[in-house]
């Protein structure tokens, strides 16, 4: 059974099809990258899978169950978490609180114990907090938990989003351009982090423009162009595909 199965997915914005009859699968425990020129539909695809947008046609299945058209807050329950291309950090909260929101579903959210400060509630809060601290440690933000999120530099915000998504305990983690705007050293650290995440059995779906990162971490690569699947396979399988070269990789692809 595939972890994620997308079948005949269509999303139109007016007359323009951002995603056009797209099908692909993601196997459990793998790192799969999605590449393609700007406007290929990568972020739209993420929004469709995570439930922020609803498709006009097609199916999205996760671990064999259909999740098509489910609202985003229910999609995450089945085990899908994501980050955003332009960071969507909660800037009005501390770093630690950001990650704790990631653990929202795991927390005790019964209104009465919360309002009346019943003791059972505190155990759940402590667990939530400890997990968030551990995750901050893991992404390299240890000790920054009490800072306001808006005091972090850009690179740290990208890591914070990853920690927050991990707090939702996903089986599939979708990363939308985690290395965008980062310097080479920071990108290498993200590379390592992604491999660590995958090593813990979390399936990773990655949208990224940094080809060095994509080549380094991906088990499989899906190439999108104008909302359609152009090619799919391992790096060495797609890099010589003439259509891919023409559409996207260009001179850059041939040189590598």
């Amino acid at each position: 059974m595939s972890r994620l199965e997308v079948e005949g997915l269509v999303k139109r914005f007016g007359p323009f099809a951002a995603i056009d009859q797209l099908s692909f699968v993601v196997e459990p425990g793998t790192i799969q990258s999605i590449i393609g020129p700007n406007g290929a539909g990568k972020t739209t695809l993420f929004n469709l899978v995570s439930g922020l947008l609803h498709p006009d046609a097609g199916r999205v299945c996760f671990d064999g169950g259909e999740i098509t058209g489910r609202p985003a807050h229910r999609v995450v329950r089945s085990g899908i978490a994501r980050t955003f291309q332009n960071v969507q950090v909660f800037f009005n909260m501390t770093v630690l609180e950001n990650v704790m929101v990631g653990g929202h579903l795991a927390c005790d959210r019964r209104l009465l114990p919360i309002l009346l400060r019943l003791p059972g509630h505190f155990a759940s809060e402590r667990r939530c907090r400890d997990r968030a601290l551990a995750l901050l440690d893991q992404v390299g933000l240890a000790g920054l938990g009490d800072r306001p999120a808006d005091a972090l530099p850009y690179g740290a915000l990208k890591r914070l989003e990853i920690a927050r998504a991990l707090a939702a305990e996903p089986k599939l983690l979708m990363l939308d351009e985690p290395a965008a705007g980062l310097n080479p050293a920071e990108t290498d650290a993200i590379d390592t982090l992604i491999q660590e995440i995958a090593a813990r059995g979390i399936t990773v779906l990655l949208v990224e423009h940094d080809m060095r990162l994509v080549r380094g971490v991906s088990d499989r690569i899906l190439v999108l162009n104008r909302g359609r699947r152009l090619a799919a396979g391992r790096w060495d399988e797609i890099r010589h595909n003439p259509e891919v070269v023409a559409a996207y990789l260009g001179a850059e692809g041939r040189n590598r």
Partner: peptide, 12 residues
């Protein structure tokens, strides 16, 4: 308040 879409994708 900070980001409605992000909150939504985290199960809120």
């Amino acid at each position: 308040h900070g980001s409605e879409v992000a909150a939504e994708t985290l199960g809120v």
